[in-house]
Simulated assay, not measured.
Amino acid sequence: MSAMDSFEEYRDSARRSGVPEHAIDTALRLARPQIGLGPTDEGGGILAGRYGGLPALPPDVAWNGFPDFVASVDCAALPRDVLDFPLPRDGQLLFFANGRDVEGSAGDAAVVHVPAGAAAAERTPEEGTPHTDPYPLYARSAWSMPTSADGAVVADGETKRVYREHRLQEHDRAEHVRRADLLLGGYAYSPQDPPFVQTPADHERDGGEYVLLAQADYELFGAPGWTGYAVWVMYRHDLEAMDFTKAMGGVLASHP
């Protein structure tokens, strides 16, 4: 879907609900690009990764089966220059997070970049370690809109007022989010307030801006009905340096 199609779909939905043009413009100014990776190529998705299975890691990367392997992304296959932050041009990005804890976790998340051509072998953890049977992931670009609780909204009083008064988040159908098992970039979606929200004052104090690198949701191992919502974040300066050892994150757990 092109940017214009996406924006016009949002604009048409908001207009039908009587939202004034100035409020619609406020919402669309906040739109951020996002790449969704899901299990089908419906709608022109490009094969760009794999969900589950076992990770292929270089020999110098320690991994004993935890945090759990979530997915890998083929950087060379992703749509080019879509996101508002840089990613490696080649190699694999591997995402790990806690897939077992119904209490959630604050630090059990990691990202590993395996450059193209680097020696790597599929790593088999100890017997009994849970994992998901692998399946392919197909990438599509889309636009991401914040929820009314996101830092991009609440940091400015007037934006917060307009966003909530006109229920602006309700006009984002976010179909690509429902189809995706892994999302790169954009805004965080979770059953609670978005994690790792920072205001401009926070950025000044700690000397950097957090960027939401990726997010995923999945059924927790051994906990039927429980869903884990994982996020991976980085300071922008670390991301621009491609230093994925600095990735941070955590998991929120939710039960319907």
Rank of each mutant, 00 (worst) to 15 (best):
G44F: 08
E103Q: 14
V111P: 11
R15M: 08
R205W: 15
D238L: 09
D181E: 10
R89H: 12
E170T: 10
Y10K: 07
P67T: 06
T147Y: 07
G53C: 06
D108G: 02
G18S: 08
V111C: 02
S13D: 07
Y51W: 13
A180S: 15
D25R: 15
F244M: 05
Y189F: 11
A76Q: 02
G228A: 03
N98K: 09
I35P: 01
W63Q: 00
R32C: 10
P59I: 01
L239Q: 09
R161D: 15
P200D: 03
P134W: 06
P33E: 14
G36A: 06
V70C: 08
R89I: 04
A214D: 01
D181S: 11
G38E: 11
G44C: 02
E165H: 13
Q198V: 11
L183S: 05
P146G: 11
Q192D: 11
H22W: 09
D243S: 06
I24F: 07
R179L: 02
P125T: 00
E204M: 12
V102W: 04
R100N: 05
P88K: 09
A62T: 06
Y189P: 02
A109T: 15
R167Q: 15
R50T: 14
P79M: 12
P20F: 13
L78F: 12
F7E: 15
R236I: 11
I46F: 05
L213G: 12
C75A: 15
G128P: 08
V61N: 01
D5F: 08
S141T: 08
G43S: 01
F85V: 08
A174Y: 00
P134N: 13
S13T: 04
E219G: 10
A23K: 07
L182S: 02
G186W: 03
H255M: 08
G208L: 14
A116D: 12
P33G: 13
T227M: 10
E175V: 04
A230W: 00
G207E: 14
F7Y: 14
L239A: 11
T227Q: 14
V82M: 02
V112R: 12
E175T: 12
S190V: 08
G222A: 08
A121H: 12
A241I: 05
